[in-house]
């Protein structure tokens, strides 16, 4: 076997082992990386920070642990922004029956963290409501665009200290909402095709702000550039950008007087978010560099092997 052929036929266990090691080792180190946040993430953060405290937004939480690596930190970052800015939210899902429980568990963990950090816990029913799951994404999102109150009718949640579950429309989160236009924004965290379904049915009615997995980021970039989305966080780079922006702000002078992220897209100074901002996005990003470098290396080795083998074959002929 020539060197070229050998380079093309590395056993798969070597590749797998390299990947496991690469995806593990850097996680034990805290490595700060330089960053230049992309425009869609800047718009996402600036838009979220422009929502007045006390107002209500909808959160379409269409993810489960299958995409926890991307959707988990996206959800956490959004929750941190909404909770610290005292924005009320209603969480619904049209993607997966597991999603409401996943969102509930994540909010419970975030609340425990908030209490540890000395922040007030976000109260169910008073500050947020869990609307639940609707299996027909198309019908439900269309119903929301026509009559939000009917679309969410019959759903109940527990106020603190209540003995019985109460209609969600009696909660302070939704009681002043007459239709979808009263909602300040719809934030989507999606690992399914609900990104398209929501654009098709709600884009004309409410500002849409998306956080999607890397796989659907290129397609959603088109919706962002056509103005159908007010902001977009795509994949791990997007979440790293968002966590970076939450720490540095936009056009905001730091302690040294320097502006870490300057953007002409955003008028004025968007301040950073006080408190714990760096989450799994920041933790995973250095490791992603190593894994991608391994991938590039594997492709190069394969191609070099191919050229060497071809050359050797040509010489032997």
């Amino acid at each position: 076997m020539s060197i070229g052929e050998k380079l093309q036929s590395l056993p798969k266990w070597i590749l797998f082992l390299c990947l496991i090691v690469t995806a593990s080792v850097l996680q034990f180190f805290n490595i700060p990386l330089p960053n230049k946040p992309q425009d869609p993430a800047i718009d996402y953060y600036a838009f979220a920070m422009s929502i007045p405290p006390g107002s209500t937004v909808l959160v379409s939480s269409d993810w489960t642990n299958s995409t926890h690596g991307e959707s988990g930190p996206q959800f956490d970052a959004l929750m941190r922004i909404l909770m610290r800015r005292n924005i009320k939210f209603a969480v619904y899902t049209t993607a997966d029956g597991q999603a409401p429980q996943v969102a509930k568990d994540e909010i419970r963990r975030l609340n425990e963290q908030r209490v540890k950090d000395g922040e007030r816990p976000y109260r169910p029913f008073e500050d947020y409501v869990m609307v639940g799951y609707f299996p027909s994404a198309e019908g439900e999102n269309l119903a929301m665009s026509i009559n939000l109150r009917s679309a969410f009718a019959g759903k109940k949640d527990f106020p603190e200290g209540a003995k019985e579950p109460v209609d969600i429309w009696q909660s302070p989160v939704l009681k002043d909402i007459k239709d979808i236009s009263d909602v300040k924004a719809l934030f989507l965290i999606s690992a399914s095709n609900t990104d398209q379904i929501i654009i098709e049915r709600l884009a004309a009615k409410v500002p849409l702000v998306y956080a999607v997995t890397g796989i659907s980021a290129p397609q959603n970039f088109n919706y962002y550039s056509s103005g159908q989305l007010k902001g977009l966080v795509g994949g791990l780079k997007g979440i790293y950008d968002l966590e970076y922006l939450m720490t540095s702000g936009v056009n905001h002078p730091g302690a040294d007087g320097k502006i870490a992220v300057a953007s002409t897209r955003v008028p004025g100074d968007v301040p950073p978010l006080p408190g714990r901002n760096q989450g799994l996005g920041t933790a995973y990003f250095p490791t992603l560099h190593a894994a991608l470098a391994l991938m590039i290396l594997a492709i190069i080795i394969g191609n070099v092997g191919m050229f060497m083998a071809r050359k050797a074959q040509g010489a032997s002929k």
Binding site: Q8, L10, K12, L15, F16, L19, A23, T64, N65, S66, T67, H68, G69, Q98, A291, L294, M295, A298, I299, I301, G302, N303, M306
Partner: peptide, 22 residues
């Protein structure tokens, strides 16, 4: 579920190494 979906990373690396040729 998270483990199931993450397995694909291994196959992507292996497929890219073996099939991504110029």
């Amino acid at each position: 579920e998270a483990a199931m979906f993450s397995i694909i990373a291994f196959y992507i690396l292996s497929a890219a190494y073996r099939a991504f040729r110029v």
